[in-house]
Write a protein that binds this DNA or RNA. Structure first.
Lengths: 120, 120
DNA sequence: TTGATGCTTCACATCAATGTGAAGGTCAAC
DNA sequence: GTTGACCTTCACATTGATGTGAAGCATCAA
């Protein structure tokens, strides 16, 4: 599909789709006229990217973790340098801390809402 | 305590502590000489703020949710306008989505690390 | 064939969160 | 009484994720 359709399906400005490409997060093919051509699987990938960005991860880190989230893992063993593994471990732990922080605060907001609603 | 001590305890540059104040997230008292004076409870609060920032929440939103996370809730019922409640609900749901996204990807990274390690 | 729409690249603008440094006031200790 | 550590405000710079617009080519429908 072309960039416009992907933009609609993922609710993402074309500007950002080009930006993600520039950051090395996605690699669309090119048609003869230069137009970008996106595979279907990129719909999910873009949604995933935006979720991670929204959760505070920078594109630099997202780029590193994306390859190991693909289904056929074997291809990516070449990337499994010790430094890469250390980075992944660090990011995994950081994500865990984020989850903990978000959960705690989310629950507190939820409690507050419940309390207020109970008095209404 | 003064800003330097708070900076040490929270591992946060003084520049940022002043920035959080400017954004209305914390309100230290002032001494006669103009120095900022922070209550002890602000240590936890700053850590909490930084956790939320790291998880992708902007200061604008953090400012809105902080009041309802305090223990003595009753004080803040005045803030409980319908718009405020709607905002809180929206943010709570957004946080839930973030948690889901982070968990899924964290688990995928973890699986990857396990797989790689199992072959070592 | 013309006009609308969509694509391309390039480039400047914005916003939030930070970094950094200047110029100066406070205060404790030596 | 001066040095050094800490504080103040002001202000400009940077970075990452975006918004926005210009100038030009491609595609397609009327």
């Amino acid at each position: 599909m072309r960039i416009g359709e992907l933009a609609k399906l993922t609710d993402t400005p074309t500007r950002l789709l080009r930006y993600y490409e520039e950051q090395g997060l996605i690699e669309p093919h090119r048609r003869e006229n230069g137009y970008r051509d996106y595979d279907d699987y990129l719909v999910d990938r873009v949604i995933q990217i935006r979720g991670l960005l929204d959760a505070g991860l920078p594109t630099r880190i997202i780029k590193q973790i994306l390859p190991c989230l693909d289904k056929p893992r074997t291809i990516h063993f070449a990337d499994a340098t010790p430094e890469m593994l250390a980075t992944l471990e660090r990011e995994r732990d950081r994500m865990t801390r984020r989850i903990t922080c978000l959960s705690r605060n989310r629950d507190a907001i939820d409690d507050y809402l419940r309390t207020v609603r109970a008095l209404a």
